[in-house]
Amino acid sequence: MSERHTSLRPVGLPRAISMRVDAEGMPIAVTRVAARGRHGTETHVESIDEIWRVAEAWWREGSQARTYFRVILEGGRPLSVYRDDATGAWFEQPYSEPRQEGTAR
């Protein structure tokens, strides 16, 4: 008998970034990690388009709470980033509205 193992690898995992913030905790400039772990250059945030919060299973231990920002970088490039509300760490992650449960794609 032969066994076959297959594993699933998540798509859209967040990537760590460095974020400089103002006194109110709003993003001012972002530094993305470049290839081979080198720090990239800092890019200024021109504007913040939208802010929203996602608290997943907040009633459970180890739940995640994130504050997402959709920002426009200098040069006009949009970027979705979030702050992990538990640790204060920043990540970039493309974000779209989740599909309604039970609907076709």
Partner: peptide, 24 residues
């Protein structure tokens, strides 16, 4: 080569929605 498969497309955290499955 992998295939994109829906896991929990309705999940609020994007990394939980889809996954890559080895194309065999």
């Amino acid at each position: 080569v992998s295939r994109v498969v829906p896991v929990e497309p309705w999940h609020r955290l994007p990394e939980h929605r889809y996954a890559l499955l080895e194309y065999d």
